[in-house]
Computed example of a mutant assay.
Amino acid sequence: MKLYNKLYRSPIGMIEIQGTEEQITSILYNEESESDDCGDECPRVLNECAMQLDEYFRGKRRTFTFPYQLDGTIFQQRVWEALTEISYAETSTYKEIAVHIGNEKAVRGVGSANGRNRLSIVVPCHRIIGSNGKLTGYAGGLWRKEWLLRHERALK
């Protein structure tokens, strides 16, 4: 299975989209921007993903419809699925997600799964905050998490 890379320049930095001919496998921030870009040979799904991300950043899109694949344990997949149920511009906590998936003691596990999410923005791990209401870890940096939450709230 061949993987393709597409670079998308967002308002919060370069994003590398990776996928196959049929689905997206990761959307991650790329500080170095040295990845190859498939250019004119990008599969349609990568171009669609970049277009939908652009619409999101322009305030024209709140949900994503392109096909994607999440690889992880059953527990991680349950956490990631719960993340997709958090409404646009809303937040949840690690504890609330743990309760939602039926394992209220798995707060740390939820945090760990959140940190392993490879589909930034689309699986909205940026919408998870600490129980005290403060921003907590985000693989893309807390400044990006804050930017994304402000962006969504401004357009709500």
Rank of each mutant, 00 (worst) to 15 (best):
K2V: 11
K2N: 14
L3Y: 14
Y4D: 07
Y4F: 15
L7Q: 07
S10P: 01
P11V: 06
P11E: 08
I12R: 07
G13W: 02
T20F: 07
T20I: 10
Q23H: 13
Q23L: 13
I27N: 04
E31Q: 14
E31V: 10
E34S: 12
S35F: 09
S35M: 09
D36V: 13
D36F: 11
C38A: 12
G39C: 01
D40R: 12
P43I: 06
R44I: 09
R44P: 00
V45I: 12
N47K: 04
E48K: 01
E48A: 06
M51H: 10
Q52M: 01
Q52N: 02
L53V: 04
L53F: 04
D54N: 14
E55W: 10
Y56F: 15
G59S: 08
K60D: 14
R61N: 07
T65V: 08
T65D: 12
F66G: 01
Y68C: 07
G72N: 08
F75W: 01
Q76M: 07
Q76E: 15
Q77W: 02
Q77F: 02
R78P: 00
W80I: 03
E81N: 10
T84R: 07
E85V: 00
S87P: 09
T91D: 08
S92L: 02
T93R: 02
T93F: 05
K95M: 05
I97A: 03
I97P: 03
A98R: 06
A98T: 07
V99E: 14
I101W: 03
G102S: 04
N103F: 10
A106K: 02
A106C: 01
V107N: 04
G109K: 01
G109Q: 08
G111F: 02
A113S: 13
N114P: 00
G115I: 06
R116M: 11
R116L: 13
N117L: 03
L119M: 12
L119W: 05
S120E: 15
V123C: 14
C125L: 08
C125M: 13
H126F: 15
H126A: 06
R127P: 06
I128R: 04
I129Q: 09
G130T: 11
S131E: 15
N132V: 05
N132Q: 11
N132L: 04
G133R: 01
K134S: 14
K134Q: 15
L135M: 11
L135F: 13
L135E: 12
T136R: 13
G137W: 01
A139M: 08
L142E: 02
L142G: 05
W143H: 11
R144H: 05
K145T: 04
E146G: 08
E146D: 14
R150H: 13
R150C: 10
R153L: 11
L155Q: 12
K156L: 13
K156F: 05
